[in-house]
Amino acid sequence: MPDAAANFDQTILPHLDAAYNLARWLIGNERDAEDVTQEACLRAFKFFDGFRGGDARAWLLTIVRRSAWTWLRSNRRHEEAVEFDEELHGGIDVSASPEVSLIRAGDVDAVRQAIATLPAVFREVLVLRELEDCSYKEIADIAGVPIGTVMSRLTRARRQLQTALSTQPQSGGLS
């Protein structure tokens, strides 16, 4: 009979890269992202009994996200840790799309920098959608928000990213 640790290795650990990627993008630095990921994985192990099968990756990402937000709240500036208020900031902006060209799109450092400057609530939906290829429903479950909110956050995240990538200066290294 395989023991609990082996089960955990087979079910949860294959998704460690996804977990770390989300934590790393939310937290912003390697060391703390590792700590948060480790804490989340141990939490996942502790509550493994509560995992009823289904999507192990989404389950782990939900726990990682929660741990990352707890970290953000106690370690970051107030503005960063406040979850975005849709009412306050309005819904989807449907005015004509900005005429921007992605002049820096080929520059990985510039793209990385542009994502890093997004508010955390935008960063997480963008990372889950574009880097982890999650569906709207999965993102809604992981972030604990309605699908409509996922859509509006994603729209705004992309808008900001497009603007950032078209207004950054063309020359000079960023890393």
Binding site: A5, L16, N21
Partner: peptide
């Protein structure tokens, strides 16, 4: 753009889980 979990993180989690068991 996608960060990969460092090897040391992987081994440290495995060790912590074994200890918990």
């Amino acid at each position: 753009l996608r960060f990969r979990a460092p090897t040391r993180l992987r081994s440290s989690i495995t060790a912590a889980v074994e200890q918990a068991v």
